[in-house]
Write a protein that binds this DNA or RNA. Structure first.
Lengths: 225, 225
DNA sequence: CAGTAAATTTCGCCG
DNA sequence: CGGCGAAGTTTACTG
């Protein structure tokens, strides 16, 4: 990884055209050739960048200024960096990273709810997790206290897209005589008002689930720190 | 901006729990307090990070290792970085960045299509751009050669979500006696087969538009390089 | 490899 | 400040 701090101008042409006026910035060149141009603020997104696979060619512009041209391997995307003044330039061998270990995403929420379907509704039992349909897997297929089929869509944050998704599943499943009638439950840690309104309009029930509560029902096992 | 290259371990607890095993990485500390932990590969997304506003507290762990604790101002998100070995550590005053100048996004495509509605269909005329409905603005409301209302949804890349969005608008607009009947046109620089199929199923026409052609119809003005 | 959904999404606009 | 949609989204998963 090469790290350069420089007063620079940047132009990008590809899926859009963009320009960065002359200013001091940090440029990271990763070993796979990818380049990030960072300012001293904003979030983790660089001002401009080139994703791998790409190649960096170091050259000199007509006016004598050092100019980097980064071109994408497949597309004709181009990033041009004019380095007017280099403040810092260093290279570091980092090696391959072991990578991030995650915990707590939707998948885990789905596992917990599959184990504790009663948290969705009294008398609810699990039929199948990841019940396959022609257009994709339904998170949970359940049977309610009255013996009716229930399709459950689980999200961390419940928004309109999730309701649309569940609606498509329900439409399809209700064409199947062996399942029909199937009603829907939209379960999430948090449900946006718009999603709740749309769900109500579609006859879909909303259930807000607490991740920590569900975890408490479970074996209180590993916590990272 | 502070740049540190170090052999480090990272733990994050917040919206999820995550861990990075001991390895050499680059750590950027921006002047707003935000922290990025980068590996020497992958795209522009850091392995782990903390978004501003947040505060960094430098301390020493029980075993004597330097440990940074970054905490978010509002939430209780915490990023803990154990710096086992520091290879590089430098600070640079970058100042405020003038920011990125963009060109060529969906907004521009919408402007161009609003100016040249005939590119959508012969005899088409514009009624309103960003026509407001209760659930959001329709990109273009037009009138076709026969005098019928047409709602146009514009995307750079036409995918299923866009068709769903237009469907919701159409459903709502067709309840309005003053507008009814309204048909839909899904316009994009590229339309995925699945989106095209869904659109056809919903009675929505698809139009592929060429950004450069539209631009050619326009005043051939500024190009950045 | 393509297609689809999630993301500690981030970013920008508009009320 | 919150809601909502776009993004040069990126990333992960699945068929």
């Amino acid at each position: 990884m090469r790290i350069v701090v420089a007063r620079c101008q940047v132009d990008y042409a590809g899926r859009l055209t963009a320009h960065l006026p002359l200013a001091l910035r940090v440029i990271m060149v990763k070993s796979d050739g990818s380049v990030l141009v960072h300012a001293d603020g904003g979030s983790y997104k660089p001002l401009n960048w080139m994703s791998p696979p790409c190649t960096l060619r170091e050259g000199v512009a007509e006016d004598g200024v050092v100019e980097w041209t980064v071109t994408a391997k497949k597309t004709d995307d181009t990033l041009r960096i004019r380095l007017e003044e280099v403040i810092h330039d260093s290279e570091h061998e980092l090696g391959v990273d072991p990578g991030l270990q995650k915990d707590g995403v939707e998948k885990h929420l789905q596992e917990l709810l599959a184990e504790h379907t009663s948290a969705l509704e009294d008398g609810m039992s699990l039929v199948r997790r990841e019940y396959m349909t022609a257009i994709g897997p339904v998170d949970l297929l359940c049977r309610d206290a009255a013996g009716g089929s229930v399709a459950v869509e689980i999200k961390r944050r419940g928004e309109i897209d999730g309701v649309e998704q569940l609606t498509r599943y329900l439409e399809l499943m209700n064409r199947d005589p062996k399942l029909r009638p199937v009603r829907g439950i939209f379960a999430a840690q948090e449900i946006k008002p718009q999603a709740r309104t749309l769900a109500k309009d579609r006859g879909i029930d909303c259930v807000v689930v607490d991740y920590d509560d569900l975890r408490g029902l479970d074996d209180p096992s590993l916590r990272l720190f």
